[in-house]
């Protein structure tokens, strides 16, 4: 019963943490708003981290580097088109170049078979799928037993694997704040697979 809740929480917390390390303003400003005396959890805050908008972009951007595009029209979503180009591809390339061949377990071997151009579409698709599946359980959308649609244990495992892969790739970037040393990151990654 708690699988979807845990899975969705894991995704939201993990991706917010990674977003905060890339774009600290986004997370720090939300913290400041929550410290204001007039902040109340009963009222929806426009500054809250939104899955659509902050993690996934609202829409695809064509012609990313058009000269007349203003900064406010450049999505800063974690899995958005701009971060794909300026962050994720380079991070992934650094990761596959830095991890010794015999380290990282089966998950790392799978990552090595993905191209730098393919990594973010893959992460987007998987994160969208797992988040959507978890959300259906959270919102009690099912009028028939949720177990007919998914195995919550597997969903949680999928969420864990996804978060681990995203975190490992992000950690490999020099632009990431509070990086773990590479060796420590790989050891964490390997332990999760046992």
């Amino acid at each position: 019963m708690f699988g979807p809740f845990l899975g969705r929480s894991l995704l939201e917390v993990a991706f917010t943490a990674i977003l905060g390390r890339l774009d600290p303003f986004r997370v720090v400003i939300l913290r400041e708003m929550q410290l204001r005396p007039d902040y109340t959890p009963e009222r929806r805050s426009q500054a809250s981290i939104q899955w659509t908008g902050d993690i996934h972009a609202e829409k695809k951007v064509d012609d990313l580097w058009r000269a007349d595009r203003s900064v406010k029209d450049m999505t800063r979503a974690l899995f958005g088109d701009y971060y794909e180009q300026i962050f994720w591809r380079g991070a992934f390339q650094r990761l596959v170049d830095s991890v010794p061949e015999d380290r990282g377990g089966e998950w790392m071997r799978e990552l090595r078979r993905i191209t730098p151009e393919g990594i973010l579409p893959r992460l987007r698709l998987e994160s969208a799928r797992i988040y959507s599946a978890c959300s259906k359980g959270v919102h009690h959308e099912f009028l028939i037993p949720p177990s007919n649609f998914y195995d919550a244990t597997t969903l949680l495992k999928d969420a864990t694997e996804l978060v681990a892969r995203v975190a490992l790739v992000a950690n490999a970037s020099k632009d990431m704040l509070f990086q773990l040393p590479s060796q420590e990151a790989i050891e964490c990654f390997e332990r999760l697979q046992v």
């Binding site: 089966e106 799978e110 579409p121 698709l125 799928r129």
Partner: peptide, 16 residues
Amino acid sequence: YNDATVVEIVREEEQA
């Protein structure tokens, strides 16, 4: 890239 997950069948000697 967006409409399916590609799962490869890979058997490598390093795998458990």
